[in-house]
Nucleic acid binder design. Structure first.
Lengths: 223, 223
DNA sequence: CAGTGGTCTAGACCACTGA
DNA sequence: CAGTGGTCTAGACCACTGA
C-alpha cells in the first residue's frame, strides 16, 4: 500500500500471518526469493521484513531463515490524559482549584508538593495529589498553578515522558469523600502515575474520581 | 550503540533530544550533513532518522528539513493479563468455575457465551462474562472450559490479537456482590476488553474484581 | 525552482550457525 | 562451510514544498 514497495511487501506478509494462512513456526521465503518474486532489491525486502520483526510478527535467525513468530500477547496503548483537554473535547467546563502548595527539600533534592480539586461544569470531578521534581523541571517552581492545572502544564512543558500507571478501585476515604461530595466508602477510581524524562523522575500523581464520572480506555496496539 | 552505525546515530540524537539539548521545533542537520559528520552513506542516516520519526521524536518535512517534534504524550503499554498465570506467579492457587455456557446464533454468526467465577486460594477473585466469536475461533466450541479458563486458553490459541480496554470503578450489583461475597455497592474494579485478530472480532469480556483484590498496571513505553 | 526527504537499486563484506 | 540475515555503500530518480 501507500506506494512504497517495502510497505507493500510488509502488508502482504502481515495479512497472511494475521489471517492464519502462515502459521506460527512456519518458514518464510529467503530474502533472495522474495526479492525475485517481487522484482526488487534485497534492501527493500530487508526493510519490509525488519519492520515485521520489530513488530514481533516474525523472528529472523541467521543461517536458518525467517519464521512466523510464536503467539505473543499484544499490548494496548494507554495515553497520559489531560483532564482539561478531555473535558473541553466533551464541551464541558474544567476548573482546577489548588488547595495546597509547598516546596520540600530532602536529601539535596527539592520537590514541589501540590494538591487540588478538579471540577467539571462546577461539580467535583477528581482530587489530585502531586509531586514534581524541581531538579527535573525547575520552571515548575514559578508556575501559577491556580491558573493552569499541573498535569496540563506538565504535558506542555515536558516532552516525551515515559510513565507507569496503576489503576485501582477504592472506597472514598473520609477526606476524599468530603472533597468529592460523596459518602465515605463510595466507589472511586484511583489512578497513580509516575513519569520520567529519560532517566529522571519528573512527577508522581494520584487522582481519585467518583466511579461514575470517569473511566480509563486503552486502545489497540500492534506491539 | 550495539555496533550498528545507524543505531549509534539514532541513540546520539535521541539522547540530545531527551536531555533537552535539542529543543522542540529545533532543526536537525540535513541528511547530507549528518552523512558527512559521521562518515557514512545517506541510507544509513536515513534509517536512523526514520526510526526516530517512527518513535515520534522528530518530524520530517520535505524541502524544510528535520525538526525536533513538539511534545507529544507518550503512551504506556498495557498487556492483556492472564489471571491464572499472574496468580501462579504470586504463588497463589487459581481456579475457574464455569457457571454458564451456551451458543447463540444470530444474523448468521455463532457466538459462545460464557460466564464464570475466578477464585484465588479458594476465595472469590473475579466474575467474568465473555463472548467468543465461533467464526473467528471455531476451536473454542469444543474446549472444556471447566478445565481451563477462557482467557488462558484464548491467549494460547489466538496469536497477535489487538485489543481495547475500558477500566472503571463500580459498586457491586446485587448478583455480583453475591458471587463475590461482598456487600451490594461495595467498590469493585470493572474491566471490559474487546479483542480482534486482524479485522475479525475474537472475544469480548467483562471482569469484575473486589477493589482490594486487583489493580491494573501499565508500564512505560517509548511510543 | 532548488533543496529536502522518500525510496529504490546493485553490489558488497561480514557474522553467525545449523544442515 | 555454505546459506542466511545484518548492515553498509554510492549512486539514482522522484515528489514535495517553502524560501
Amino acid at each position: 500500500m501507500s506506494g512504497s514497495r517495502a510497505e507493500a511487501i510488509r502488508t502482504a506478509y502481515e495479512g497472511r500471518i494475521l489471517s492464519g494462512e502462515l502459521r506460527p513456526g512456519e518458514r518464510l521465503p529467503t530474502e533472495a526469493a522474495i526479492m525475485t518474486e517481487w522484482g526488487c532489491s534485497r534492501m527493500t525486502v530487508n526493510r519490509a521484513l525488519s519492520a515485521l520483526a520489530t513488530a514481533g510478527l516474525i523472528e529472523r535467525r541467521k543461517r536458518a531463515g525467517t519464521f512466523v513468530a510464536r503467539p505473543r500477547v499484544h499490548a494496548m496503548v494507554l495515553e497520559i490524559p489531560d483532564l482539561a483537554a478531555d473535558l473541553a473535547a466533551q464541551g464541558r467546563a474544567h476548573a482546577f482549584a489548588l488547595t495546597s502548595r509547598r516546596v520540600v527539600a530532602e536529601a539535596g533534592a527539592r520537590t514541589l508538593h501540590l494538591s487540588g480539586l478538579h471540577r467539571a461544569d462546577g461539580a467535583p470531578f477528581a482530587i489530585e495529589a502531586r509531586r514534581i521534581s524541581l531538579s527535573a523541571v525547575p520552571a515548575a517552581e514559578h508556575v501559577d498553578f491556580t491558573r493552569i492545572a499541573p498535569g496540563t502544564w506538565l504535558l506542555q512543558a515536558v516532552p516525551w515522558t515515559e510513565a507507569s500507571t496503576r489503576i485501582a478501585a477504592t472506597g472514598a476515604a473520609r477526606d476524599e469523600a468530603a472533597a468529592l461530595d460523596l459518602d465515605p466508602g463510595a466507589p472511586c477510581l484511583a489512578i497513580e502515575r509516575q513519569t520520567w524524562r529519560g532517566d529522571a523522575a519528573v512527577t508522581w500523581v494520584r487522582q481519585v474520581f467518583p466511579a461514575d464520572l470517569y473511566d480509563v480506555t486503552a486502545r489497540f496496539g500492534s506491539g
